[in-house]
Amino acid sequence: MNTITLKKIVTLSKNDLRSIFRDKSFWAPMLAPIAILLLLRFGVPQLAIYYPEVNQYQGLILALMSCINAIFPAFFVSFIMLEEKDLQLFSVMRVMPLAPHWFIIYRISFITLMSFGFVFGTLLLSGLVALSLPKILALSFLIALMAPLTTLIIVTFAKNKIEGITMLKGINMGLALPLVAFLVMSPWTKLLAIIPVYWIYQAFDMSANFWLNTTIGIAYLGLLIAVIFRRFKNKVFR
């Protein structure tokens, strides 16, 4: 990466962060990941004192909350990008001397990195599940991929911010759906594997093969991101 590219990335990131911090509607959601982390760190152990059965689900609780924390950056960036779409700022980006799709790749990287930080912090500081550093890093990357996927889905298919919020709510509700596979004993629950977050829960299943499930999860999420990215590029960023 040369100095000019680095300068462009720094300027864009600085302005993306300005846009996020200056939007009052983002102030409360910005504190939510910290609240979730505090809940995991102090709330869940307290709950386990009164309801010891909670202990066997701590991995799944951590997985679900990490996914929710991963989605917050997607919420911020989706709304910035919906505004860009609405104001036709993508056309402005396309008449700038940037390599093709440089801007979208930057955005996907920006959001993945931001989300990675949120998830890494959650996994490292929650104190619920003892994980080695390589596993924390691998899981953080896997879960962080939920952010670009969510952002691309919202920006590609939502026509405005109202539709964006509705989609985000739907995605958030869908995060818990694959948990059924751990609560109901039926071969049909394997069908839940088409939901990307299923592979995240599988990676938290200590009785299963961590590296296999994590690799499948990363590959599957990567494939979905590639498919939606293509649609976004052809239908929105054109």
Binding site: K7, K8, T11, L12, N15, R18, S19, R22, D23, E83, L87, Q88, L89, S91, V92, M96, P97, L98
Partner: peptide
């Protein structure tokens, strides 16, 4: 462009500096 298209949360100068950095 025919319609104004800028980053609304950024100032006029920040908008120009952002696009200027691409050249």
């Amino acid at each position: 462009f025919e319609l104004p298209n800028h980053y609304l949360k950024l100032t006029a100068l920040e908008n120009l500096q952002l696009f200027a950095s691409f050249y």
